[in-house]
């Protein structure tokens, strides 16, 4: 399928999903679906750098929170409209990805991973000490009373925005995967030196990948303050984002854009159910155990099984 066809299809599906969801009376559906979609974006974004390029990012929460807190800042400073927040947060997180990448991607891959671990704590400390955006106490974000497009509640708007952003993230991920850039990234993942000697501008591609990946993670966070209506640093920087955005692609499969989606839908839904029925601490434990189990026993994830099965049939 051509990328343009795929994009048209993805956005058409997104619009159809949004329209169909209007028939659902239950508000819980919207808030649960919002969370799962948010994880799809995070997992897809992580996979662009992690799965396609082979660089582990432990700082998903930092990028997510960058998006969230840039929205808080715009809310406080300008009462900016939602679209402006989304665009600004995405750009800010992309810039952050570029900066961290520039500092560390010239070295061995593990230094990038360690730096991203550090990044989350530095930014967390920074936000905790920044009173303008609420500091450690957090900040209240009041949802606007006027809701555009004749939607009944603000959560419907956030949900619709999330559906569209998810479609965008998938279109971008797939476009990268099937393009020359995607092949270059795969070459880097397999053998960086050999890639460089085959003409692949490795540093530039890694920076590109880190930037896009960071930007999409930030985008997922931009609507988060409105979603919670109250934001505090420990919510925005929750380790759950970091571990989920790694676990989902690893469980689903890292070689294509489908894997993270499968992983996110599966793990996201399980967590929604466990959160309601048992407790949120248990669902984090489940994610951790699944992560370790898959990474040791089924390193290619669910899509790995599918590929193996397909190859056998051929």
């Amino acid at each position: 399928m051509k990328n343009r066809t795929f994009a048209a299809l993805a956005f058409a599906t997104a619009v159809a999903v949004i329209a169909a969801s209007r028939l659902i009376p239950n508000d819980y559906f919207f808030s649960a679906a919002y969370t799962v979609l948010q994880f799809i974006i995070l997992a897809t974004a992580w996979n662009i750098l992690g799965g396609y390029t082979g660089y582990v990012n432990f700082g998903s929460a930092a990028f997510f929170a960058t998006g969230a807190y840039s929205s808080v800042f715009l809310y406080k400073a300008l009462h900016a409209p939602l679209v402006v927040m989304i665009v600004t947060g995405t750009l800010a997180a992309g810039l952050l990805g570029l900066a961290v990448g520039y500092l560390t991607l010239r070295m061995r891959g593990v230094f990038f991973a360690i730096a991203t671990l550090a990044l989350a704590v530095v930014l967390y400390t920074f936000v905790v000490n920044w009173d303008y955006v609420g500091g450690a106490r957090g900040a209240y974000i009041i949802q606007p009373r006027v809701i555009p497009f004749g939607l009944p509640r603000y959560i419907h708007l956030l949900y619709s925005a999330m559906v569209l952003m998810t479609a965008l993230a998938l279109v971008i991920a797939r476009a990268i995967e099937t393009s020359t850039i995607g092949r270059g990234l795969a070459a880097i993942r397999d053998d960086e030196l050999a890639a460089e000697c085959a003409g692949v501008p490795t540093l530039r591609l890694k920076l590109f990948s880190a930037t896009v990946s960071g930007a999409l993670m930030g985008m997922a966070g931009t609507t988060f303050p409105y979603y919670l209506a109250y934001i505090e640093p420990s919510a925005a920087f929750s380790l759950s984002y970091a571990v989920n955005s790694i676990a989902m692609p690893l469980i689903g499969g890292m070689m294509s854009w489908v894997g993270p989606v499968i992983g996110a839908v599966l793990l996201g839904s399980v967590q929604q159910i466990v959160q309601v029925t048992i407790s949120s601490a248990w669902n984090l434990l489940i994610v951790g155990v699944l992560l370790v189990a898959f990474v040791t026993l089924a390193p290619n994830g669910i899509m790995g099984w599918v590929d193996a099965w397909r190859r056998k049939r051929r």
Binding site: V56, L239, L285, V289, V292, V295, P299
Partner: peptide, 28 residues
């Protein structure tokens, strides 16, 4: 699982991250 297969850079890291996470949540 990792070193012998040459997968330590990505999956090995994720493995230790998972261990870190499990230990923390279990203690909680």
């Amino acid at each position: 699982c990792f070193e012998r297969r040459g997968q330590e850079s990505l999956r090995g890291l994720a493995f230790f991250f998972g261990i870190l996470f499990i230990t923390e949540v279990a203690l909680v």
